[in-house]
Nucleic acid binder design. Sequence first.
DNA 1: AATTACCCTTGACTGAGTCAACGGTACGCC
DNA 2: GGCGTACCGTTGACTCAGTCAAGGGTAATT
Lengths: 318, 318
Amino acid sequence: MPHAAARPVQEIRAFNRFYTNLIGALDYSRRLYVPYTLTEARVLYELNHARHLDAADLRAELTLDAGYLSRLLGKLEKDGIVERAPSTRDPRRQRITLTARGRETAALLDERSSEAVGSLLSDVPAAQRPRLAEAMRTVREILSGAEDGAARSRPFLREPGPGDLGWIVERNAALYAAEYGFNIDYEGLVARIVADFAEDHDPHLERTWIAELDGRRVGCVMCVRDDAPGTARLRLLLVEPDARGHGIGDQLVSACIDFARGVGYREMVLWTNDILGAARAIYQRHGFVLVDEKPHRSFGVDLVGQDWQLHLAGEDTP
Amino acid sequence: MPHAAARPVQEIRAFNRFYTNLIGALDYSRRLYVPYTLTEARVLYELNHARHLDAADLRAELTLDAGYLSRLLGKLEKDGIVERAPSTRDPRRQRITLTARGRETAALLDERSSEAVGSLLSDVPAAQRPRLAEAMRTVREILSGAEDGAARSRPFLREPGPGDLGWIVERNAALYAAEYGFNIDYEGLVARIVADFAEDHDPHLERTWIAELDGRRVGCVMCVRDDAPGTARLRLLLVEPDARGHGIGDQLVSACIDFARGVGYREMVLWTNDILGAARAIYQRHGFVLVDEKPHRSFGVDLVGQDWQLHLAGEDTP
DNA sequence: AATTACCCTTGACTGAGTCAACGGTACGCC
DNA sequence: GGCGTACCGTTGACTCAGTCAAGGGTAATT
């Protein structure tokens, strides 16, 4: 197995060991579930959060043995925690409902579990807690995406907030350094562009967008005034590699074009380099045409710069 | 319980449910440990990675019942997997050693476990894997810090790589916006500073440092030439709030001063604002003195700017 | 009408983990 | 040197958790 590929595997295994230990410590130290067991508590949790599931659903959800679950539900029924009734849709299936008492019990277990986690959390410095929650959400998102069919939320655009311009600099520099070997000159160029934008831009004619997906910044684009009159310039289009394929680049370019057309620009231009193939495809889809091309050496590499142009107002408007 | 405090608790509980399910799915689907059990596998793992532990250590490490472990070791011994001998230091204790066959077995289980994780990972887009590993490491670090006495690694300084200058912009802007309400002008200022640095700096006389802790950027500082001859200017000192209290600020300022003195500057100056109390304390500790102070309005707030100065060469040098 | 597949139940079983009692040794303290 | 306490490992008896296979019943398919 190649070393590079083994790295995440080792990390995951270390994490699994760590977390089984942690959960063990969390559960055993106090009697979290008395008089019920962990599995019963999980069943109660599911029932309490989903209103009368079928037994088959529970089995699938918690990957339990059918016989085990059957007996388990029998016990809960005898305790007056759940009620079992044949499903109306399919008499083979069994609809499980929590009784009032069952809901109380579930709430109690819930409470205890929250307390246990709370006391664990009390040892975590408050400043670290948001990072912890964020990291856990990331793990969950990535792995649950791997399990089922990736039911992710939709990306959306917003205007930049504090730090977002810096983020644009960081990601541009880091990505192009990693992918094409750009040196620090490129980071300087991007920093200068965002500095100019931050210090002096006309919000009616110039704008920046950040694309966000699942609470994470995954792309950006900037629209500024060009020297030529009536002309807007699109700059700094970027989509994070792991977020590509969601149409985020198109969304960003569309926002840019719509904005420019809306505020009266007649032309839109942009400068890019021939090695950026993914970006070129996006520009072409939106009607940009290549108007000039010339080789240059910048950012420590030999490149071929390209000027693209798009007519915003003209014969094709009604 | 206040809502804000409950948020991370809910996140952690959701994560726990998710991860117990995941581990369950991982273990049951294939026969990972045959002919041993999960607990036995954990014991084997510990032994294989630590060379002859005492039984008591195993118990503590894996939080196992003494009786359970005793019987478990008995079984492993009978299978020729481990050997038990009284510890040389304390005859009450028992030193457990893997036999050659035990090491084989451990390696086999290791292999299988890696395979299982690998196949789980194969459903994760390659682009997401580093993020996953990173997030897991974060979770582990924060929570293990919470369990024992925070045995964190030492912070260290390094020169910036691609994206680090952008990171400086981002963190400066985000932190000062959150803590003091600075507006986008400040982000512009910082962006211009790093742009100037990136585009044109003399590496012998000007330098930037990034502080790293546990693989994460937690601070920065920049040393550049000032207009006045023989004078260096310290800029953009920053330490992440959750990493404060480790002496990182001092480390950064020391690096800056040592560098400036080493390359022959005679003075070091810096400009800051009176509201930045933590930074002031650091400057004072390193011998800076306040030489000027005047109110101004910048970044959308009313501030009192301060000029500080430090003699690098003079009567106090031998 | 027959086949197949799924749903639940039941009995019999193995494995995982707990609890309490016990003998042995180390260590601190008179 | 002797005593109490505390920890180490062992053992027996037990409960709880989970598995497997057989079986009766209904739904969907043909």
